[in-house]
Design a protein around this nucleic acid. Sequence first.
DNA 1: CGCAGCGCCTGAAGGC
DNA 2: TGCCTTCAGGCGCTGC
Length: 267
Amino acid sequence: MPELPEVETVRRGLEPGLVGRTIVDARCTSNPKFTSAPDALGATVEEVNRRGKYLLIAMADDRELVIHLGMTGVLAFEIDPVRGPHERAAWLLDDGRWLTFTDVRQFGRIAVVDAGSYESLPTLAALGPEPFDESLDAEMFWRSLRQSKQRLKTRLLSQRPIAGVGNIYADEACWAARVHPGSRRITRAQAAELLEAIREALAAGIANGGTTLRDYRNVSGGTGSNQDELKCYGRAGEPCSRCGDLLVSRVYDGRTTTLCRTCQPMR
DNA sequence: CGCAGCGCCTGAAGGC
DNA sequence: TGCCTTCAGGCGCTGC
């Protein structure tokens, strides 16, 4: 499930091959989530940017090609792509290569919008600050968390307090910061610890080329290695590497959550 | 307006 | 072996 580190890895892989290229052909399937892909036809790519989990491909006509990978979206450069059953869209570049978008579960999304106009993508329009934005400090983060009565985990996944955190990195960061993901109120000090833990977890994810549990691939088809470094996510039933107590699994607002009851007390 | 709940979607895995 | 059920989960949408 691509979260910020996976999307950033994809962004870095796309950038050198995409900037300066003009889109000369395009195709898509009939699922409305992907039918905007051909709207980028004729445009020249100026920048490959990212906000949270969204790829924002800036084009010379002041529009943006927005791509969200959803759960199983994979972008790849290919010379002569086999149009497999899961290909949802593809763009032919003026150097003869195709950029293909495959997405088994079709949770991804493609949109072409006027630059910065995100009304059709409400989560992007209301996205919180980038994790590595220096103007985001612990006080601001704590205030944003406090604004809501939602559980901490749910609030993090809303993308409002901070952009780009999904289920994996939320569990990892809460574990590292010793805060309970089901908590509805955390202290200023806990928020400071959590912000630092989120930054460390995401930075590690990027450094390791992302987390590949099943579907995630970079644009070269390779896997990441961060799955080998996870301390909490997906390890329910195994001993906590910090205290030895068994990690447990909970469901909060429909999201499976792993935590250590000893290291992460509710208060 | 905030937020809980649901639906989308398919393949893997587990139960019988 | 094969059928059926459950699960994974980000985000958009609906309705309270």
